[in-house]
Simulated scan of single mutants.
Amino acid sequence: MSDHSINAEKYWQANLRLILGSLVVWALASYGCAILLRPMLSGIHIGGTDLGFWFAQQGSILVFIALTFFYAWRMNKLDEEFGLQE
């Protein structure tokens, strides 16, 4: 294999790890905290309501927005690392 294809494979593997990690965090926030862990989080109050309800209504959306910015920032760093910046 050429040096270019090895570099492209490493870039793609790093991208997939980033995507997988982001999806796991988002699933834990939206499905885990809002649905599965809701009974455990019901005793913790935030903003006048319990934490499980907050995650279901606002928290998972805020986590998704934060992950979007994190992904863009991290991809820019990966692009610089592999010499693919715009």
Results as ranks from 00 to 15, higher is better:
residue 79 D to W: 08
residue 34 A to H: 00
residue 3 D to N: 11
residue 58 Q to G: 04
residue 79 D to E: 14
residue 11 Y to R: 10
residue 39 P to S: 15
residue 38 R to W: 06
residue 31 Y to D: 08
residue 55 F to I: 01
residue 82 F to N: 05
residue 67 L to T: 04
residue 25 V to I: 12
residue 51 L to R: 04
residue 56 A to Y: 07
residue 19 I to F: 03
residue 18 L to A: 11
residue 83 G to E: 09
residue 74 R to C: 03
residue 55 F to T: 03
residue 23 L to R: 01
residue 57 Q to C: 03
residue 19 I to L: 12
residue 9 E to K: 05
residue 12 W to V: 11
residue 66 A to E: 08
residue 43 G to H: 05
residue 37 L to K: 11
residue 27 A to W: 08
residue 28 L to A: 10
residue 57 Q to E: 08
residue 42 S to W: 03
residue 5 S to R: 00
residue 16 L to D: 00
residue 30 S to R: 13
residue 65 I to C: 04
residue 42 S to N: 07
residue 74 R to K: 14
residue 48 G to E: 11
residue 61 I to M: 11
residue 52 G to S: 05
residue 78 L to R: 05
residue 76 N to M: 10
residue 56 A to W: 02
residue 32 G to Q: 02
residue 31 Y to R: 10
residue 1 M to E: 10
residue 25 V to S: 01
residue 71 Y to M: 11
residue 32 G to A: 14
residue 10 K to Q: 14
residue 28 L to I: 12
residue 64 F to P: 00
residue 64 F to I: 05
residue 5 S to W: 00
residue 22 S to N: 00
residue 5 S to K: 03
residue 68 T to L: 09
residue 15 N to G: 06
residue 7 N to H: 09
residue 5 S to V: 11
residue 72 A to D: 09
residue 77 K to H: 06
residue 2 S to G: 15
residue 86 E to I: 14
residue 39 P to W: 07
residue 80 E to P: 01
residue 62 L to V: 09
residue 16 L to P: 00
residue 41 L to F: 06
residue 47 G to R: 11
residue 34 A to T: 08
residue 81 E to V: 02
residue 74 R to Q: 06
residue 2 S to H: 03
residue 13 Q to F: 14
residue 74 R to A: 15
residue 48 G to T: 02
residue 57 Q to S: 13
residue 52 G to W: 03
residue 86 E to H: 11
residue 24 V to K: 02
residue 20 L to T: 07
residue 18 L to E: 04
residue 80 E to Y: 06
residue 50 D to R: 02
residue 33 C to Y: 01
residue 85 Q to V: 13
residue 59 G to C: 08
residue 23 L to E: 00
residue 27 A to C: 14
residue 53 F to Q: 03
residue 69 F to K: 09
residue 20 L to D: 01
residue 37 L to R: 08
residue 28 L to F: 04
residue 21 G to C: 15
residue 30 S to P: 00
residue 32 G to Y: 07
residue 42 S to D: 10
residue 9 E to L: 13
residue 38 R to P: 00
residue 75 M to E: 09
residue 48 G to N: 03
residue 24 V to L: 14
residue 9 E to A: 15
residue 70 F to T: 08
residue 44 I to L: 13
residue 59 G to M: 06
residue 38 R to K: 15
residue 82 F to A: 06
residue 78 L to D: 07
residue 63 V to S: 01
residue 78 L to T: 05
residue 52 G to P: 01
residue 66 A to I: 15
residue 53 F to P: 00
residue 9 E to D: 02
residue 24 V to T: 06
residue 81 E to N: 06
